[in-house]
Nucleic acid binder design. Structure first.
Length: 424
RNA sequence: GGAGAGGUGGCCGAGCGGCCGAAGGCGCUUGCCUGCUAAGCAAGUGUGGGUUUAUACCCACCGUGGGUUCAAAUCCCACCCUCUCCGCCA
């Protein structure tokens, strides 16, 4: 959520931000109009409430002085004021919920360093690491390994429908190895605290992080309790400190969590049908930070480095792009995507997304911190995949494959695979 | 699922329907003091909103939403959450 004062006082900035994102700007005028009515009403209401308070005090005084008649007179007056207040309060409640509802649909303001553009073609490559391997044979796509009894798409479909996969044998173990490798790296070397989280969360929780109310069709909802399966560990991690006031000395807080992620992929019917690039359920290691506002962009660079390090250790070629305004997520002020090289696509594909959300989620979830001078302020939140495990598995299969159909196990994973060097 | 207890400021904790935005303690900030640190002394210290150039003034908030009342942290109702005991269970 953005600050209503920003809409009120710096309307042009917000309008420009929406335009760059390719979003409708009319909602701003609607918000301003409601806000104005609300403030007028509030002033009127506060005057009446002040009057009632005065009258009540007067009653107390008169009663103490045994001035029964006079007090009865004041009570009558006060009753009328109270009735008026009740009516205005009802109207105010309606206006405020209308306003809140609209504000929840406004995306975050992109940072100045974000390139302007309407879609992903305008994303800017900021760095590249490693070189795609030249194969002296026709490399297989990861789904072609299905005949090895590693990936089972057919039976997954039998159980759950399309966009599910079953990992078997050494591949199941490789998935687990990746999870442990990533968690170890981030906890032991990058200073994140490991957290095991609930995968079902309340409607409020997921509203704080911004997926609701706008993107409900992307989420799995469970009945009768109205709990949602998390689309990313970012949701419960960020919500950890909702409605809390943190200590400045404790910042930045850094968390890492492994969870499966559940997504309905409602808007992507034709996309990535083959293989396990786009699944309704996938494993992910997620990094989340809570920082002071003045440090958040610096921390974003560090977060990006922490995620990149996973690919460096796995020796997988990748590049980093700075997402343009049109490609930026709803809550993000700035996002770097890390894209790994996939021979089957002959291109780089997203494997991590690292964002500075600034105070957008902090405002929604009321996450604040107390400065040394006792002032209270919203924190900034950041999140990034470190990394998407399923896609990392794909990248290993495709980049480490050999002519005979076997796959080399990246060195850093061997300790997690009982020393296994080759998948056969 | 059944029975009971409870939700008050950053934290702990008190609070006869009006003088309660709320005692006291801890913490925090500043100053004093003492070789340093700790302790001690003194002062300050809730959040959000509205009007305003400013000073300032006003309003709301004691889990949430209703109700009673001239007036609610305090009384009533509903809901949510936490804890304890019993049942069930990995």
């Amino acid at each position: 959520m953005i600050d209503i004062k920003l809409i009120r006082e710096k309307n042009e900035i917000v309008k420009e931000a929406l335009r760059k994102r390719g979003e409708n700007q009319e909602i701003l005028d609607e918000i301003l109009e409601i806000d104005e009515r609300r403030r007028k009403l509030l002033t009127q209401l506060n005057q009446l409430r002040a009057k009632r308070n005065d009258l009540s005090k007067l009653v107390a005084k008169l009663k103490a002085q045994k001035e029964e008649e006079k007090s009865r007179e004041i009570i009558e007056k006060s009753k009328n004021v109270s009735n008026e207040i009740k009516i205005l309060e009802e109207t105010l409640r309606k206006l405020e919920s209308e306003l809140k509802a609209k504000l929840l649909y406004i995306p975050n303001i992109p940072d100045g360093s974000v390139p302007v553009g309407e879609d992903e073609s305008k994303n800017v490559e900021v760095k590249k690491w490693g070189k795609p391997k030249e194969f002296d044979f026709e490399p297989k796509a990861h789904w072609d390994f299905a005949d090895k009894n590693w990936l089972d798409f057919e039976r997954a479909a039998k159980l759950s429908g399309s966009r599910f996969v079953i990992l078997k044998n050494k591949i199941a173990k490789l998935e687990r190895a990746l999870i442990n490798f990533m968690l170890d790296l981030h906890t032991k070397e990058h200073g994140y605290m490991e957290v095991m989280l609930p995968h079902l969360v309340k409607r409020d929780t997921i509203t704080w992080t911004g997926q609701l109310p706008k993107f409900e069709e992307e989420l799995y909802n469970t009945q009768p309790d109205d709990l949602f399966l998390i689309p990313t560990a970012e949701v419960p991690l960020v919500a950890l400190h909702a409605n809390e006031i943190l200590n400045e000395a404790d910042l930045p807080l850094k968390y890492v969590a492994y969870t499966p992620c559940y997504r309905r992929e409602a808007g992507s019917y034709g996309k990535d049908i083959r293989g396990m690039i786009r699944q309704h359920q996938f494993d992910k290691i997620e990094l989340v930070k809570f920082t002071k506002p003045e440090e958040s962009f610096e921390e974003l660079e560090k977060l990006l480095n922490d995620a990149e390090e996973v690919l460096k250790r796995l020796k997988l070629p990748y590049r980093v792009v700075n997402l343009c305004t049109g490609d930026l997520g709803f809550a993000a002020a700035k996002t770097y995507d890390i894209e790994v090289w996939l021979p089957s696509y002959n291109t780089y594909r997203e494997i991590s997304s690292c964002s500075n959300v600034t105070d957008f989620q902090a405002r929604r979830g009321n996450i604040r911190y107390r400065r040394k001078d006792n002032k209270i302020e919203f924190v900034h939140t950041l999140n990034g995949s470190g990394l998407a495990v399923g896609r990392t598995l794909i990248a290993i299969l495709e980049n480490y494959q050999q002519k005979d159909g076997t796959v080399i196990v990246p060195e850093v994973l061997r300790p997690y695979m009982d020393g296994l060097e080759v998948l056969e």
